[in-house]
């Protein structure tokens, strides 16, 4: 028996919004420690890794490890039927071929449940090596989203250059070029508005705008985002989900031939 309850469906909607741009379907691996998901996008350029800890749920029970393959468009249809303030409970029997989403209104006067067929998906787990990154940039998530959106207009790729002075995002194309430089903040009223840079050595890497923009669909999950970079390895874009876990996106760089 598997049962996981979240006080607000809003958070699950945000999690789904953060992955459904990149993935059509995905396997949710449920265990005692929580719900994990790891999946590559169709073109095998990026990897999504989601972790929702069991202690982040209002109620969590998982008697046996369970892998639930879900069609994310169908899951989105179901979540659309919930109000953000509704409680959501995800339920499945051991070895079941369906999962049930139950929504309860705050006053408990409306209870709805939706059953969805599960899919058998080919599980391809990738081993992600531990890496000491040359640069880790932390910045407000809305700022990162804004930069990606703005630069997409000027080119297909963004060049990210990180030095101890700051981080620069550049794009260029037929119409011209664009450069955005962020310096480390010296003092901020709110911690989430800070830009900070941890640098071992400077890095310059090129990434496809399209994927960066998809990653920023996670912006509503977290006020801050971190970008971890080293030469010639995938970028890690990480959003901490308060009191629940994290979502990480890995993106393979573009390499000059």
């Amino acid at each position: 028996m598997f049962e996981a309850r979240l006080i607000s469906s809003g958070i699950l909607k945000k999690v789904l919004d953060a992955i459904k741009d990149l993935l059509n379907e995905a396997t949710f691996d449920c265990s005692d420690s929580g719900i994990q998901l790891q999946a590559m996008d169709n073109s095998h350029v990026s990897l999504v890794s989601l972790n929702m800890r069991s202690d982040g749920f209002d109620k969590y029970r998982c008697d046996r490890n369970l892998s639930m393959g879900m069609n994310l468009a169908n899951m989105a249809k179901i979540l659309k039927c919930a109000n953000n303030t509704d409680t959501v409970t995800i339920k499945a029997q051991d070895n079941a071929d369906t999962v049930t989403f139950m929504f309860e209104s705050q006053n408990q006067e409306k209870v709805s449940d939706y059953e969805m067929k599960l899919m058998n998906l080919d599980q391809e787990h990738l081993g992600i090596p531990e890496t000491d990154y040359a640069c880790i940039v932390r910045m407000p998530s809305h700022e990162f989203a804004r930069i990606c959106r703005d630069l997409t207009q000027f080119g297909e790729s963004v060049v990210i250059t990180c030095t101890k002075e700051g981080v620069r995002f550049s794009a260029s194309g037929d119409s011209g070029s664009a450069n955005i430089k962020l310096a480390q903040t010296s003092s901020v009223d709110k911690e989430e508005e800070a830009v900070s840079i941890e640098m071992q050595e400077p890095v310059t890497l090129t990434f496809a705008c399209q994927y960066l923009n998809s990653f920023t669909k996670a912006t509503p999950l977290s006020p801050q985002v971190s970008l971890s970079m080293s030469a010639d390895v995938p970028l890690v874009v990480e959003y901490q989900i308060p009191d629940l876990g994290h979502i990480r996106y890995y993106l393979a760089p573009k390499i000059e031939e």
């Binding site: 590559m40 350029v45 990738l126 081993g127 992600i128 890995y250 393979a252 390499i255």
Partner: peptide
Amino acid sequence: KSTQKNILSYFSKT
């Protein structure tokens, strides 16, 4: 001209 790398060239299947 830059080439998009594949994520599988960095992470191996387990």
